[in-house]
Every structure is written in C-alpha cells, then in structure tokens.
C-alpha cells in the first residue's frame, strides 16, 4: 500500500512536470500578450518597460526555470491583468465551480442510478423504454442550447428561477458557498441541472447496461435460489457488481465537469473558474492559464487516485500490490 502510494506520487510529479513544459511552450506559441495588454498608443520605451516588467524579455528556458522555482514555493506567477497571484485568483473562483460541479455529479448519481436500475430491470416496459429514449436527448443536445432553453422557460416565461449569478452566499470554512442559502440554492438549480444532464444520461445508460449484463449471470440465479428477497438481489448482489464501471466514469466526470464547466458558467453568468479561464485566454494572461491547467491536472491525478482506492473497496479481486 505505501509503496504503491509512493510510486503513484512519483508518477504524479512527472506528469505535472511534463504538463508544465507542454503548457509553457503552448502559451508562448498562441500569441504575444503585450499586444493586448498595452495601449496601442504606447511608445517603444513604454513597451520595453512593460515587457521587462512581465519578464517576457528573457529567453523561454529562463522564464520556465523561474516559473519552476516559483512553483516549488507555491507561487505560480502573477496575473498580467489583475496583478495578483494567479493561484489566488483561481482559489477565489474555485468554490463556485466546485459546488456547481459536485452538485451536478450528485444529481447524476442520485437520478441516474435509480432510473438506470429501473430501465435495466424492466427493459420492455413503457417507462423503461421512455427513460432510454429521453436519455438519448440527455447527452446529444448541446448544453449551451439546453441552458438557453432553461432560462427562457423557467426564468423568462415562468419566472420561477433566477438565471444569473450565485445569489446569496454563506460562509463555511472561510469560503463563500451558495448551497447554504435558499436563495443560493435557487440560483444553482438551473446551472447544476444543465451541467448534470449529460451525466445523468451517461450514468443511467451505464447502470442499465450493467444490470442487463449481470442479471442473466449464474450468481444472480443462485442468489434467487437461496430465497433472499428480490430487493436484496438487486441492491446488494447486482448493484455492487455494476458499481465498478460507474465509479470509474463518475470519477472522470467530476474532473471533466470542473474543468469544462465553461459553457454552463458562461450561459448562467456563474462566476466560476471556467469564466476566468476563458477571459484569461482572451487576453493571453499566461500565468493564469498555466496555473489553471496545473490545477486541473492535479485534480485529475487526485481523482484517479481516489477511484483506484475505491476499486479495492468495491472489487476484492483488485489488489494494489502483492501481499508479499
């Protein structure tokens, strides 16, 4: 276990390192931030001053080296635009994205698994087939369009739900959260639903496929032959077997939702990381882009680690290493 963890940590460091190189070269290729940052009327001397102040006059390898030294001390550079540490900017926006993404994941599990179970157990029933039919819409409709439709129906025409912003927030662990207030929750309903829709469909279809695959297996028949209740057969015997692929996908989806909540955040003017990264890319705010991507990579590494640990809980045949 410990050597497995250690090996994973070393791997993670290398992944992060490789990521910094790719990102660093990448942001240098896409454009020169100076053109955007200084006013067009600025003269040559002013321009040179700005370049020097941002450290852009140095060769690339030196910029990279400086960044690495800073990163080791927890400093991922200062935003060109806000003149604040990039990490701080991201940390400010992160709770908003995090609560949105986690709510969406929760919704996809809480709604997707029961519906998937139902559709799997009663595949030829009308309800079962309806669930499957609607689920196709769930992941084939583009999320920006669904978002706009949600706003049009529930905010504009019915006036039930607010359509922009986080609403009222409350503090927990020194961070502002929307889910703690009724008003904040009302603000979260539409963006979270919008974000969750594709994932509900995914989890649902995965659950159904798992049920269809597992039901004809001998262990199910044997469990029934033991005379245990049908609900125990489904919720203990079958569900535990199909949780393995579901955990894998949900794990990856958490990362994906956090990293790519951009569209939903833009549609609902949700002040999260997604909007920050889009704005930063528009003005080529290199430190923020780099810091953001580093955070996302870290997030994926942590999630994968948790998923691997969960495997051992769910499937006894998975061992992280040999006992001896």
């Amino acid at each position: 276990m410990t050597t497995w963890m250690l090996r994973r940590l070393i791997q993670a460091v290398f992944v992060m390192l490789a990521m910094t190189v790719i990102v660093f070269i990448g942001v240098n290729v896409i454009g020169d931030p100076i053109e955007i940052l200084i006013s067009p009327e600025a003269d040559q001397a002013e321009r040179a001053r700005a370049v020097a102040a941002l450290g852009l006059d140095k060769p690339l390898w030196e910029q990279y080296w400086k960044f690495l030294l800073g990163a080791l001390q927890g400093d991922l550079g200062r935003s060109f635009v806000f003149n604040e540490p990039a990490l701080k900017l991201i940390a400010q926006r992160m709770p908003a994205t995090l609560e949105l993404a986690l709510t969406a994941v929760l919704m996809s599990v809480v709604i997707g698994i029961p519906l998937g179970l139902y559709a799997g157990l009663k595949p030829s029933s009308l309800a079962g087939r309806t669930i499957m039919g609607v689920s196709i819409l769930g992941f084939s409709l583009p999320s920006f369009w669904v978002g706009l439709m949600l706003i049009m129906v529930f905010a504009v025409q019915l006036g039930w739900l607010p359509s922009t912003g986080r609403g009222q927030t409350a503090e927990l662990f020194g961070v502002q959260w929307s889910f703690l207030t009724a008003n904040g929750l009302a603000h979260m309903v539409m963006p979270a639903t919008n974000l969750a829709l594709g994932n509900i469909a995914l989890v649902l279809r995965l659950t159904r496929a798992g049920v269809r695959e597992n039901l004809p297996m001998d262990y199910v028949k044997f469990a029934r032959a033991k005379g245990i209740s049908p609900s125990r057969v489904v919720f203990v015997h079958v569900l535990k077997n199909i949780m393995i692929p579901i955990v894998t996908v949900v794990g990856l989806e958490i990362g994906g939702l956090i990293a790519f909540a951009v569209v939903t955040e833009s549609v609902f003017a949700w002040p999260g990381m997604g909007k920050l990264i889009i704005d930063s890319i528009n003005v080529l705010d290199r430190p923020v882009i780099v810091a953001y991507l580093m955070m996302i990579v870290l997030l994926f590494i942590v999630i994968n680690l948790i998923v691997d640990l969960l495997y051992t809980v769910l499937d006894p045949r998975v061992r992280l290493e040999n006992k001896e």
Binding site: D218, Y219, K221, K226, G227
Partner: peptide, 25 residues
C-alpha cells in the same frame, strides 16, 4: 416460492466459478 427456495428446496449449480457473487464475502 421464495419461502421454499434455499429453505425447504435447495439447488446446487453446475458452474462453481460463477455461482458465488465475486464481490461479496
């Protein structure tokens, strides 16, 4: 039937690899 199964009438299946649930103790 469920009251009888496993209780008064038990069945032993053919394939030992597949009859026990692999993820339960």
């Amino acid at each position: 039937l469920r009251d009888l199964r496993g209780n008064r009438i038990a069945m032993i299946f053919q394939d030992p690899m597949m009859t026990l649930n692999p993820v339960l103790r």
